[in-house]
Design a protein around this nucleic acid. Structure first.
Lengths: 196, 196
DNA sequence: CCTGAAAAATTACGTGA
DNA sequence: TCACGTAATTTTTCAGG
């Protein structure tokens, strides 16, 4: 089965810029028929590339809260616990987990009191220290602009083009840049399974 | 002209969760007719509350870059210059400006080399120092959950809903969340006037 | 802001490359 | 498998009150 190709990427770019564009307009732009565009978008959703259709809101117009960026220095081994707790805090818009184990989140809070929220949502002992920065401005750039659009080959890491392959293995979808990577991966996977 | 009311916020929440929901479904949820929902959404766009209809992509599937969080400590007075430069960098998804003048951005970069990108996009002299953190995970919570209504009760400070009241007093318009706040305010106002 | 009708967009389905 | 055309269906927009 063919995975993502250039046309899919063009469709994505058009949707990111304006998700209400009618299919016939997209179809014109990518030289396909509207039903085909529809099929492709369905597939992009199935693949998980399109997570959702949504609206980009100007939150400063909606909320009278204070936007903050909170940086939690988490005790080793408790990152995912803290991460999950933070996700449940009201007003949290973005959440980042750094490779060295910090959990950073962007939230809009009714008052500046971060501490009670934290003690409420997580075991505060899991946090060595934290740092709160008031935000003046924030922006979201959904445009994929110059970003290289490429699925990574799960075997060699190269980008996956329209010549690539994919396999469903044990309910997971894996992407490959070529059939040799695919078979190599499947072999290794089998070996791993046997070893277990 | 009427500002935002509870119904608008409900509509926004529904759209954020799924911008493809048909108007009749939204209409049912908020007890309006589909054309009215359409009118309201148009107004929300005109007001700038809805900036755009878009799709939320899973970039980890698309880009083989590395996700990083970069914290720029900017020279005083050059924040907006740096901010604008950063906005132009390819792969930048989120950008935050802190009250104390840091510009922080979340980007997915093809390679780990941040420095050349920075020197390319901005005058590096404007940055005192910077800090790059590799990201392991990030999440976006578009739900406006704790979103507060923009109008504050002039008596108690709570948010004003569609059940609220308003009074013209001496040429000024005051908003209240309920009639008791309204009368309390008016009483105090009278007393204040008499005292003067 | 509503109802009801017209216009437009999306989806379903059968066919062919 | 992928795409298309046509037709059915759903959704959005437009009038008029």
């Amino acid at each position: 089965m063919r995975e993502l190709d250039e046309t899919d990427l063009e469709i994505l770019q058009l949707l990111v810029a304006d998700a209400r564009r009618p299919y016939n307009e997209i179809a014109d732009a990518v030289n396909l028929s509207p039903p085909t565009v529809s099929d492709r978008i369905d597939r992009l959703r199935d693949l998980g590339v399109v997570k959702r259709f949504t609206v980009d809101l100007d939150r400063s117009l909606l909320s009278d809260g204070v936007a903050v960026l909170v940086d939690l220095h988490v005790e080793p081994g408790r990152v995912s616990e803290v991460r999950n707790g933070v996700e449940g805090i009201d007003g949290v818009e973005h959440l980042f987990v750094t490779a060295d184990g910090n959990v950073i989140f962007h939230a809009r809070l009714r008052d500046g009191a971060v501490e009670p929220l934290l003690t409420d949502a997580i075991d505060i002992d899991a946090v060595r220290e934290y740092d709160v920065k008031l935000l003046e401005d924030s922006a979201w750039h959904p445009e994929p602009r110059g970003v290289e659009f490429a699925l990574e080959c799960d075997e060699c890491g190269n980008s996956v083009t329209s010549e690539g392959e994919s396999s469903h293995i044990d309910g997971e979808l894996y992407q490959f840049c070529c059939s040799s990577c695919q078979s190599q991966f499947e072999e290794r996977y089998e070996d791993l399974k046997e070893a277990a």
